[in-house]
Amino acid sequence: MKTLINPLVIAFTLTIATFAASFANANPGKNPAPVATYQTSMYTTTEGKLQIAVEKEATGVVDIQFVNAQGKVLFAQRMTKREKIARLRLTLHDLPDGTYQVRVTNNVEVTTHSVTLSTQPPVSGPGRLVAIR
């Protein structure tokens, strides 16, 4: 009888350990956050400001950044999970001429838009000469 009980206890213990391991979460606390899909649009206003519009789902976060050519972030804003629409107007008058980027990311994909600032030199003298003889 004793020889029959020992193998049964061992088999029962192994069965419980197997079931416990199969139900255990292999990655506790690291469930992936939902990713928000988004749409962007940009245009310049008549005052020379940059208008940025972002619409997204209310499931994840979206980061908006304005970056110079060296990679320095000049402006950053995060849209939280509950925000669906962001309308931004950036004043670019104080920035030097050059190439900049607007980056919009949901931490999975990145949308990059290039912005070039250039100042036209003033025209010296009249633009048109009218001569009468």
Rank of each mutant, 00 (worst) to 15 (best):
P7S: 03
L8P: 01
T13F: 13
L14Q: 07
I16K: 01
A17I: 11
T18R: 00
F23E: 04
F23D: 02
A24D: 04
A24H: 01
A26I: 08
G29M: 02
P32I: 15
P32G: 14
P32N: 15
P34R: 15
A36N: 14
Y38P: 03
T40S: 14
Y43D: 06
T45G: 14
T46W: 07
G48R: 05
V54W: 00
V54T: 07
V54G: 00
E57K: 01
A58F: 06
T59N: 11
V61K: 01
V61H: 03
D63P: 03
I64R: 03
F66K: 01
F66P: 00
N68V: 06
N68E: 02
Q70L: 09
F75P: 05
A76C: 08
Q77A: 07
R78W: 05
M79V: 10
R82I: 01
E83I: 00
E83Y: 04
K84T: 02
I85S: 13
R87A: 09
L88F: 07
R89H: 01
L90F: 07
L90K: 08
P96E: 10
P96I: 04
D97G: 09
G98L: 06
Q101N: 06
R103K: 13
T105N: 06
N107C: 07
T112V: 05
V115T: 05
V115Q: 05
T116F: 08
L117Y: 06
T119C: 12
Q120S: 14
S124N: 07
S124K: 12
G125I: 02
P126Q: 14
P126C: 13
G127W: 12
G127M: 14
